[in-house]
Design a protein around this nucleic acid. Structure first.
Lengths: 168, 168
DNA sequence: TTAAACAGTACCAATTTAGTCCTGTTTGAG
DNA sequence: CTCAAACAGGACTAAATTGGTACTGTTTAA
């Protein structure tokens, strides 16, 4: 399982919340309360998001963070990149010399790049708006959603295993 | 940066090596020497790969592991899945109740699924053969492969650049 | 002036990952 | 038949990463 940081997940939840809420500015404290994410993490995340230009920040009393851009204009790729750096699957890119010297074949890892670009495209094609729970639809049942997801996941699980299970 | 386990990277290197080498069976020890990957890790990896049906195993003296399938028939997705489980970006699937109860908005995370599927498609469309350092140089797969991926993503963005190495 | 709020940095704890070790089990070869 | 080569499987340890904490600025509206 290729894991995204929990932080990134938090961020999407938070941004989604801000996009759905009409309040123009939200303080970190408010957000922590709303989302259940621990305040320090919220704080850290919002700082990063603001630094990346995804959120606007307003200091001083009565300040907070604001989502000035349109949710449809913010791609998941941008969020991920803001929090986790460039999107890539291995460490063997960008001339990272870490421990690669010991493995001559490592040059081959460059081919991961194809995959990386495809993933970039994937994250690029989904916007924050897409991640939001339909603004109009009143769908509370998380149960249905989950089974839905599981369903879709299994549907695409056809990796064509040969399964040579050694009879022991 | 979305990180793939180092193990998976190792695995691709190893499999690639086996695909390129004509030897029918390779022992873990041999592989460790060839690849520079620590023996225990090689051993663990090959066990997993054999269990997943990607490698064949032959016990006893003179035994070892063999790559019986064609490299073009083994997708990166299959390798990743064998080593890291189902391809997905968050933990918020499969009814994982972990800490999700505290966050009502978490149901929304289901939308990650779009992204997950795109990533699955990306990994699906690249085979072990594509990851090999051209054994027989007359295979320039990049173009076909990319349009393939783009196709599956059904969102032809500007990713189609013939831009393989992103080193700066 | 003051307090609310962001900005930045250093730090700790918990989880995860990579790697080690050891004890079977199978099996070809002598 | 015996032996050693090689896989199978599990428990364990060490290191790296991540998530969370704490604290000390800086800005600014009231």
């Amino acid at each position: 399982m290729i894991r995204l940081n929990k932080m990134t997940d938090y961020a999407v939840v938070m941004l989604s919340h801000m996009a759905g809420d009409s309040a123009s500015v939200t303080t970190a404290v408010q957000m922590a309360e709303d989302s259940g994410v621990p305040l320090p993490s919220v704080s850290k995340l919002m700082k990063q998001l603001s630094k990346a230009g995804i959120l606007g920040s307003h200091r001083g009393a009565g300040g907070g963070y604001s989502l000035d851009r349109s949710p449809g204009d913010i791609s998941v790729a941008e969020i991920v990149t803001a929090l986790e750096g460039p999107i890539a699957l291995t460490a063997c890119i960008d001339g990272a010399d870490t421990s690669c010297g010991s493995m001559p074949q490592c040059a081959m890892s460059g081919n991961w790049n194809q995959v990386n670009q495809a993933i970039q495209a994937a994250l690029d094609s989904v916007s924050l708006a897409d991640m939001m729970p339909r603004p109009f639809a009143f769908v509370p049942p998380s149960e249905k959603l989950k089974s839905d997801i599981r369903n879709e996941l299994q549907h695409s699980d056809n990796v064509g295993e040969t399964h040579i299970e050694s009879a022991s």
